[in-house]
């Protein structure tokens, strides 16, 4: 087996001295090691005090999520040799969670938020039989609506790399919101959609910045960012009125009308108050000061817009 030499740059934290620092470990190891095996090698041969959390080694228990070269993932699923950049692989604990020691984080704050969204089935008595002799049937096409979301292994890779948490530490988190979507889609769930959405809104769906980091982080291909868009759609469709739903409705309406979002009137419509009107007014002043004429302020339908509108209608109906 081929051996390779490189540096493992690991972020360490000593809870006794409260000291946090980067430490370089020079290794010469087989090129077939996973990042987890690399950590085990270091612990075994170089520094027994190196601490990390791991269990199954098969990307299913979700224990070993960490940040490798700035990107969250499971140490056991990632080949170390693919991650060597200029002779170095950088490993640090997940962000947004308190570090217990070295690469081990305290998952409890994220689990507390998870509990807040009631991440369990509340059986609908109209659907779920009241005895265990009869099966509660879910058809394949019904299950398909949330099949992917059930692949979540609660590893917290998405949480450890979430930009919305960078802005608000109280933000619920990506996997928590995926779970809300998963239960709303479940035909056996009896909790009111309104109630589930309400749980997802408190420091939740509207704070997401759609940066797509959670999609990149998930070792199972779950797409929390996309689920959040679906939750927003559901919130809008059940009649929620706020800046975001007004923006979404206006966005679609103006794209349908002209092919483009009307960013001139967007503030006025989305904010829906005097403040929004003032923003739109200010935009108008800016346009005029730059010598623009009123017909340049917003989008105009392009030639053949009728065909475009028919296209959208057909997409809605047939796709």
């Amino acid at each position: 087996m081929k051996k390779i030499k490189y540096t493992a740059k690991i972020k360490r934290y000593n809870p006794e001295t409260k000291e946090s620092y980067w430490q370089d470990f020079e290794v010469e190891v087989e090129d077939s090691l996973t990042v987890l095996e690399l950590l085990m090698h270091i612990k075994d041969k170089i520094d027994a005090s190196l601490t990390f959390r791991a269990f199954c080694r098969s990307a299913i228990c979700g224990s070993c999520a960490m940040i490798i070269n700035g990107r969250a993932g499971l140490a056991c699923k990632i080949q170390a040799k693919d991650k060597i950049k200029n002779g170095v692989i950088k490993i640090e604990p997940l962000h947004h969670l308190p570090v217990v020691k070295d690469l081990v984080v305290d998952q409890e704050p994220a689990f507390e938020k998870f509990k807040k969204v009631k991440p369990y089935l509340v059986p609908d008595p109209k659907v779920v039989p009241d005895n265990n002799k009869v099966e509660s049937l879910v058809l394949p096409e019904e299950f398909a609506r949330y099949d992917k979301q059930t692949d979540c292994i609660l590893c917290m890779a998405c949480y450890g790399q979430c930009n919305a948490l960078e802005g608000d530490e109280k933000y619920l988190g990506p996997f928590q919101l995926t779970k809300v979507f998963r239960f709303i889609m479940d035909t056996r769930d009896g909790m009111d959609v309104e109630e589930r959405i309400k749980l997802a809104e408190d420091h939740g769906i509207w704070e997401c910045v759609q940066c797509q980091m959670c999609l990149a982080a998930c070792p199972k291909g779950v797409k929390p960012g996309d689920d959040i868009l679906e939750l927003r759609r559901i919130a809008k469709d059940i009649g929620e009125e706020n800046i975001a739903t007004r923006r979404a409705k206006f966005w679609f309406a103006t794209v349908f009308e002209t092919g483009q979002i009307d960013k001139w009137h967007l503030p006025e419509v989305a904010f829906g108050d005097e403040k929004g009107k003032a923003v739109t007014k200010k935009l108008e002043e800016e346009f005029r000061s730059r010598g623009m004429k009123e017909d340049e302020f917003g989008p105009k339908p392009f030639p053949g817009i009728e065909k475009f509108r028919n296209f959208i209608k057909k997409l809605e109906k047939e796709l």
Binding site: E230, R233, K236, T245, K249, V255, G259, Q260, I261, L319
Partner: peptide, 18 residues
């Protein structure tokens, strides 16, 4: 010149297939 909005991550909130 006949191109339309990419959706901006917002049209998804109406219908992602569009």
């Amino acid at each position: 010149d006949r191109a339309a909005c990419c959706g901006g991550g917002v049209i998804d909130e109406t219908n992602k297939k569009i």
